[in-house]
C-alpha cells in the first residue's frame, strides 16, 4: 500500500469540532487522512502535543479553532494565534518543515470549509512527503 499522510487534528469543541460534525451530517466527502482529537479550546494545544504527534508517527498536525473574536472562551484562540507561529519557527530550526503544522479557523456552520481545509492540508503534506525525524540533513534535505 502506498504511503498515505497521517495527520493529527486538534479541534476545539465549540466551533471546529461542530463544523467537522456538520461536514459529516452534510455527507461531504473529503480526504480521510486527518484523525481528530477533541479539545475544549484550541488554546489547550501545547507545543508538546505537536512534537509528540510527530514523534509518534504523524506527518502533519492540524489545529483548528473558532474565528478570532468568536472564541467560546473569549480569548483562547488569540493565545493559539501567538503560540503556533512561534512553534513553527522552532520546528523550522529543528529541521521540520513548518508547513507540516497548520492553524486555521472553522466555525460551527462551516462544514464545507472544514472539508476544504482537510483536503488542502492532506495534499500539502503529501507534497512534503513522509515525516522523517532521522534524516540527519537538518532543514535542507528530505529523504
Amino acid at each position: 500500500m502506498s504511503w498515505e499522510p497521517k495527520i493529527v487534528g486538534f479541534l476545539c469543541n465549540w466551533c471546529s469540532y461542530r463544523g467537522a460534525d456538520l461536514a459529516g451530517t452534510s455527507r461531504i466527502h473529503f480526504a480521510p487522512n486527518v484523525k481528530v482529537i477533541r479539545v475544549p479550546c484550541s488554546t489547550r494545544v501545547e507545543p508538546s502535543f505537536v512534537i509528540k504527534a510527530f514523534q509518534s508517527g504523524a506527518d502533519g498536525v492540524l489545529i483548528l479553532g473558532c474565528h478570532p473574536g468568536d472564541c467560546h472562551y473569549i480569548e483562547g484562540n488569540y493565545k493559539t494565534m501567538r503560540r503556533v507561529p512561534l512553534l513553527k519557527k522552532m520546528l523550522k530550526q529543528f529541521g521540520i518543515e513548518p508547513e507540516r503544522v497548520r492553524l486555521d479557523w472553522v466555525s460551527a456552520s462551516e462544514g464545507q470549509k472544514y472539508a476544504t481545509v482537510v483536503n488542502e492540508m492532506t495534499e500539502k503534506v503529501r507534497e512534503l512527503g513522509p515525516f522523517n525525524a532521522n534524516n540527519g540533513e537538518g532543514q535542507h534535505g528530505k529523504n
Binding site: 475544549p40 479550546c41 488554546t43 489547550r44 494545544v45 501545547e46 467560546h72 503560540r83
Partner: peptide, 21 residues
C-alpha cells in the same frame, strides 16, 4: 476549563481535568 493556563505553565503544574496531558 479552556486550557489556556494549562498549556502555558512552564512547570506543567496545572492539571486539566479530563484533558490531562
Amino acid at each position: 476549563g479552556c486550557g489556556a493556563c494549562v498549556a502555558a505553565c512552564p512547570s506543567a503544574a496545572i492539571k486539566h481535568k479530563h484533558y490531562t496531558t
